[in-house]
Amino acid sequence: MDSTFGFMAPSIPLPAALAESLGVPRPGLLKRERTRLQLVQAAIRVFSARSYAGATMQEIAAVAGMTTGTVYNHFKTKEDVASAVALWLADTLCQRIADSQAGVAEGAQRMAIGIQRYIWLARESPAWALLMLDVSAAAPVLLHEIRHYALADMRLAIRQKSFRVPSEAAAMDVLNGSVAQAMRSVAMGGPPASHGRHVAACLLRAFGMEPADATEVARRPLPPFPALAAGPIKAARGRRKA
């Protein structure tokens, strides 16, 4: 590797419960998919070290141990790389959080779990949280993909009469903005460990729950992440269907 890029850390620390789902490519991927995934993983390291704005296609190639031409064979622009990173983050981290909600029937509790998991990630791995915030600004597809999961939980809570919101779109903006700011605050070392629970309670109240009910739901223990099923990690190719 060119010494110009020697500042790169070998990896970005991630909580053990999530690390396996974002690990090295598993057997079963075609060569082109494996190369694409390696480029996405290299881009994650470059974006984390340089920020999206400061990263270059040449740096991504160098960190991946490939030529710049190989990068352009898979991605026409840096924006395309950011979109691929966003889709990969959504299809892995978001799905992992959704897996931990399996068996939870209450939409309000599912929402509280999701809120707290993202803030938990910011506390456990600030670099990943800041990376997600940076990529979401460069590639809105990340928020679009996350929205599928959160909106389903919100609609379930509305059907169950737990939430009463005048507008789904407005409620989702409140959710996205509040969680993103909470992640940023926690990643920068500000609020105490109880911050995720308090943010969840505030948001449940904002969506129409009675204060005591919102507090009770937000205080429930977070369910553990289930064991990861064996199978190949897919390289991000395109937008998942709604």
Rank of each mutant, 00 (worst) to 15 (best):
A230M: 15
D2L: 12
A212T: 08
R220Q: 03
A236G: 07
V24C: 14
M66L: 15
A129H: 00
K161R: 13
M209W: 00
A55T: 04
H148L: 14
P13N: 12
R32F: 10
K161D: 12
D153C: 12
E168S: 15
P221C: 09
D213A: 08
L222M: 06
A129S: 14
A235F: 02
E20T: 15
Q95L: 15
R96W: 08
A42G: 10
R50V: 10
Q58C: 14
R159Y: 10
S194Y: 00
R219D: 04
V85P: 00
V165P: 04
S3G: 13
G107D: 03
D2T: 11
K234S: 10
A229H: 13
R164L: 13
P192Q: 04
A157C: 11
V63R: 05
V179M: 05
A170Q: 15
P191C: 06
A9K: 14
P223D: 03
L39T: 00
L151P: 04
Y118C: 07
C94D: 06
R219A: 04
I44A: 02
V46N: 02
R239S: 12
R110W: 06
A229M: 11
A152P: 08
R117I: 06
V165G: 07
A42E: 02
E145H: 11
L133N: 06
V199S: 01
P211K: 01
S125K: 05
R26T: 11
E59I: 01
G238K: 13
M154V: 13
G54D: 10
A214K: 00
A201M: 03
A212L: 09
A16W: 08
A19P: 07
F225G: 00
R96E: 12
M132T: 08
T77Y: 07
S83G: 15
R164V: 13
V217L: 00
A170F: 15
M111Y: 01
I158W: 04
P191Y: 01
S167P: 11
K241M: 11
P232C: 14
G6Y: 14
S136C: 13
A150Y: 10
Q116R: 07
L121A: 00
G65E: 08
G28C: 09
A98D: 07
R237N: 12
R26W: 10
V174L: 15
W88I: 07
V135P: 03
D213T: 07
P15W: 09
R220E: 05
R164I: 11
G189I: 06
V40R: 02
L204I: 02
A53P: 03
P232Q: 14
K234R: 14
D2N: 13
A242H: 09
